[in-house]
């Protein structure tokens, strides 16, 4: 009697559970489909951009065969090459300055309690929150009325003469300090402070403790901050555009004026080159992260 009722229940149970399973796998399937769709959306435009940099016609919409011609044109365009050097120069110099300044600021903010800390926190966060365009016109007016900055820093690199306005470097440092400070501060916050006490206990004075323990421990954060600053500097268009004055181009500024003149696969070629730069920087940051064996820090920029 009781065994009968059990056997009767089993099919209905299994039908219900089968339906639940089907529903669940359908949900899972559509979620996966959606996920792939999302990445498709993110990557497709970039992939098409790269593909048409090899297009054997002036069109960026109709494929007419494979060529390296646009890359050739790019390399022989002295304006592009000059702006590339300008970009790299500005990025390197502003990264070095902002890493030093930002790291010192991070140490002050993370390790000390003092009056005015809240104000300093706000001052450090503002350049991140304020939109590029607002910061750009602020700096433009400032450099214009103060009269400083627009004269160029003349250097010769590998036989190429650069004339980089100080205003651009100053501006890049101004927005990069905050990013460096935040990244380094996050690293400092997770650092075990007893390590420094241990060093002091082992007869290292304040300086020795800093050089032998604090700095090496901060290094992944400093490198992360440097990479972020370098990337932001290399990518910046708006602030450079407004603070450079006439006649100075970084690569993004050059690309913008090329876009304004008309779309050609040459711009695709330059874009692909910049893409390769970005990928290389991501690769470096991944290597660093592996060396520092820690949680990947997700950098969210505004």
């Amino acid at each position: 009697m009781s065994s009968e009722s059990i056997t009767q229940q089993v099919p209905s149970m299994s039908r219900r559970s089968r339906w639940a399973r089907v529903k669940k796998s359908m949900g899972e399937f559509s979620l996966s489909l959606y996920g792939w769709g999302g990445y498709f959306f993110l990557y497709l435009p970039i992939v098409i951009l790269v593909i048409f940099s090899f297009n054997d016609s002036r069109s960026t919409a109709q494929w007419s065969g494979f060529t390296f011609d646009w890359y050739g044109e790019m390399i022989h365009d002295s304006q592009i090459i000059l702006s590339l050097w300008n970009s790299l120069f500005v990025a390197v110099i502003s990264t070095i300055i902002s890493v030093v300044i930002g790291t010192l600021a991070a140490m002050a903010m993370e390790r000390h309690v003092f009056r005015g800390k809240l104000l300093m926190d706000a001052v450090l966060y503002l350049p991140i929150i304020i939109p590029d365009i607002a910061m750009a016109i602020m700096l433009l007016i400032f450099f214009d009325i103060s009269g400083i900055g627009f004269e160029p820093w003349k250097v010769s690199l590998f036989g190429i003469r650069l004339a980089v306005p100080y205003s651009v470097i100053i501006s890049h440092v101004a927005f990069n300090i905050s990013f460096v400070a935040i990244v380094v501060r996050a690293r400092l916050a997770q650092m075990d402070r007893t390590l420094e006490e241990a060093a002091q206990d082992l007869y290292a004075d304040t300086w020795q403790t800093f050089w032998k323990v604090t700095l090496p421990m901060m290094m992944p954060g400093i490198m992360g901050g440097a990479l972020l600053a370098f990337t932001l500097s290399l990518d910046d268009f708006v602030i450079t555009f407004f603070t450079s004055g006439a006649g100075f181009n970084t690569l993004p500024v050059r690309v913008f004026s090329m876009i304004k003149k008309g779309v050609t696969p040459k711009i695709n070629a330059v874009s692909s080159l910049m893409l390769v730069f970005s990928l290389a920087l991501i690769g470096i940051s991944l290597l660093l992260r592996k060396g520092g064996d820690e949680e990947p820090t997700i950098g969210i920029g505004l």
């Binding site: 002050a108 003092f114 800390k117 602020m138 300090i177």
Partner: peptide, 24 residues
């Protein structure tokens, strides 16, 4: 103790007050 903090902050504060807060 705050002296050390402000010495560390001096470069950042100077830069940001001149090239960010002043323009603002």
């Amino acid at each position: 103790p705050a002296l050390r903090a402000w010495l560390l902050l001096l470069p950042a504060a100077t830069w940001l007050f001149i090239f960010f807060i002043a323009p603002l």
